[in-house]
């Protein structure tokens, strides 16, 4: 009897294993065709030689990486000096994306907290309202933002009408405009993960903290934030990563001075003036940097968790 039961158990688990292989197929297909192959293509293209009307010549070359890091003069025959132009653009991009992430966090966290603390039946409506602006195309939203911010735009008109300022503030073509544009583009990616975390949060923990003499601020810092941290980290990554590679907001709101890495890459693939290997190399460098930052972060988190135990 016992043996029979054992046998049928094996048969069942075998069936499950087969089923699991087939049921997981879509994920493998998606990961292979939409993530793995494109990244490999990009890696390969970054080591090829550029074709002048766009496209590549299948000859191995380090020229793209060389161009990124070194300056060899107008004709390419000067001794190489370190090239700061692209590094500066990278640095500015990281700074801009970081500022946009911080702005999203400062606005997104209270918003998510507000939604999560509404009565259960109305939460879905609030989430829906948050997503409504995002039904409009990103380009149109970004252009609208430019109209809002320009010298004779509604924002400056209102501020002047209220007598707060005398002359219009220059908002378009500033770092701040880019941050605002990025913030507005990706806000729901901050709100939704934090909302999900706060909704699962056990509010009697806040009561327990208050009961144990903690002020509201201390409760937020020592009890609520640690409990919803996975949501906050998730939201920050989801805003930071696309902000870093974004080109619409920097192009439209930042102007030529506030060039970001996304625009640089975009231009390498646009029209005949592009340089595909260089665009691919810049993408690879960006990808590696983001990965390194994320790995360092994950390591330090794991380390801290271990230390606490």
């Amino acid at each position: 009897m016992a043996g029979g039961t054992q046998g049928s158990g094996d048969a069942v688990s075998h069936t499950y294993e087969n089923a699991r292989t087939w049921l997981l197929m879509p994920s493998w297909v998606v990961l292979t065709f939409l993530a793995l192959i494109p990244v490999i293509l990009m890696l390969v293209y970054s080591f090829l030689t550029k074709e002048f009307r766009g496209g590549v010549i299948w000859d191995f070359s380090l020229a793209a990486y060389d161009q990124f890091f070194f300056d060899r003069g107008l004709f390419g025959d000067d001794p190489p000096t370190f090239e700061w132009t692209y590094i500066t653009i990278f640095w500015r991009s990281i700074w801009q994306a970081g500022a946009a992430t911080l702005l999203s966090l400062l606005i997104g966290f209270p918003t998510a907290y507000f939604i999560a603390t509404r009565p259960a039946h109305s939460r879905a409506i609030w989430v829906f309202l948050i997503t409504i602006p995002y039904w409009v195309n990103l380009l149109i939203r970004t252009v609208s933002m430019k109209f809002l911010l320009r010298d004779q735009g509604p924002l400056n008109d209102t501020l002047m009408g209220l007598g707060i300022i005398d002359a219009p503030l220059t908002l378009v073509n500033t770092n701040f405009a880019v941050q605002l544009g990025l913030f507005y583009s990706y806000l729901p990616f901050m709100v939704l993960p934090i909302y999900a975390a706060v909704e699962r949060y056990n509010f009697s923990l806040s009561e327990a903290a208050a009961d144990l003499y903690a002020s509201k601020f201390v409760t937020l810092r020592r009890v609520l934030l640690p409990a919803v941290k996975p949501g906050v980290v998730g939201g920050c990554i989801l805003v930071f990563v696309p902000s870093l590679g974004s080109f619409l907001a920097p192009d439209l709101l930042g102007g030529a001075k506030n060039y970001m890495i996304g625009s640089l890459i975009e231009e390498q693939f646009k029209g005949n003036a592009g340089n595909w290997p260089f665009g691919a190399a810049a993408s690879m460098i960006l990808l590696s940097m983001v990965l390194i930052v994320l790995i360092i972060f994950a390591r330090s988190q794991a380390h801290r968790e271990k230390g606490a135990k």
Binding site: N202, S204, L205, E207, A208, A209, V223, P226, A227, A308
Partner: peptide, 11 residues
Amino acid sequence: TVFQNYALFPH
């Protein structure tokens, strides 16, 4: 207070 679900800080 001792809470019904204990409300211990998980972290």
